[in-house]
């Protein structure tokens, strides 16, 4: 925390602040985690059949749970700063604004990943699907997906606080936006599980998701200055 004026210094400061508060109160983590659990059971009740069918269902179930739990976390991105007008203070500080956004993106990514860590094994157990062989690959895809979600969802969540019905509007806005990542993730997972015929293997899906993450990440950081001025 020595060098708070440099770009990475700001990222680190905001990130550590948020993580420290979150680890102390655990409120976002608890709500997201509980929601992830509920989603898991709802989807399990909705789709559970014999293990062979479950294997076909699990990519979709996994990614739906991630998406729905993720939007909860993203919606709370600036919940703490909303009080006492701390957000305005943060924006008006000389710190580069995109650094603040980057820190918030990382926070959301970490939150989503913790939900992934909770929900993935739970799905495997409840739906009686053995994922041990493909676990590393699936987690890699989920990482790319969570990154895409954080990269698009965070700036939109920042903007959404200005609107009425923000908490209803946000999922409506974010879900269509992250469709490329969702398609890539679900299809990639299906390829890993050997559910579809894929002559090219995983590569095109991974490429697509990485391209999405990079393009929207860079675009959001670049434009954030213009998004929040004044």
């Amino acid at each position: 925390m020595s060098d708070q004026t440099s770009y990475l210094g700001v990222v680190k400061a905001v990130l550590l602040k948020d993580l420290r508060i979150e680890l102390r109160s655990k409120e976002t983590l608890a709500t997201m985690g509980l929601f992830g659990l509920v989603m898991t059971f709802v989807l399990a009740f909705g789709f559970t059949a014999d293990p062979a069918t479950n294997r076909k269902v699990i990519p979709g179930a996994l990614w739906t749970a991630l998406l729905f739990a993720g939007v909860l976390g993203v919606g709370r991105t600036f919940a703490r700063e909303a009080k006492d007008d701390a957000f305005t203070a943060m924006i008006l500080s000389p710190a580069p604004r995109s650094a603040i956004l980057l820190a918030k993106m990382v926070v959301n990514l970490l939150l989503s990943l913790s939900i992934v860590a909770l929900v993935t094994p739970l799905f495997a157990v409840i739906l009686q699907v053995d994922l041990t062989g493909e676990l590393a690959g699936i987690l890699g895809l989920l990482f790319l997906g969570a990154t895409g979600f954080a990269v698009v969802g965070t700036p939109l969540a920042v903007m959404a606080v200005n609107a009425r019905f923000a908490e209803v509007l946000l999922p409506m806005v974010v879900f269509p936006m992250v469709t490329p990542v969702l398609i890539g993730g679900v299809s990639g997972t299906a390829v890993l599980l050997g559910l579809v015929f894929a002559p090219d293997g995983l590569a095109p899906w991974v490429q697509g998701m990485v391209a999405f993450d990079v393009a929207f990440g860079v675009g959001a950081l670049f434009l954030f200055e213009k998004m929040v001025t004044e």
Binding site: N162, L169, P176
Partner: peptide, 25 residues
Amino acid sequence: GGRGEGVRRFAAVLAVFGAPNILFV
């Protein structure tokens, strides 16, 4: 969503993110 300046900015960001998104979709 309201008529404020913030909503306009939100909408602008939405359009700026949404239009190129279609290439990926």
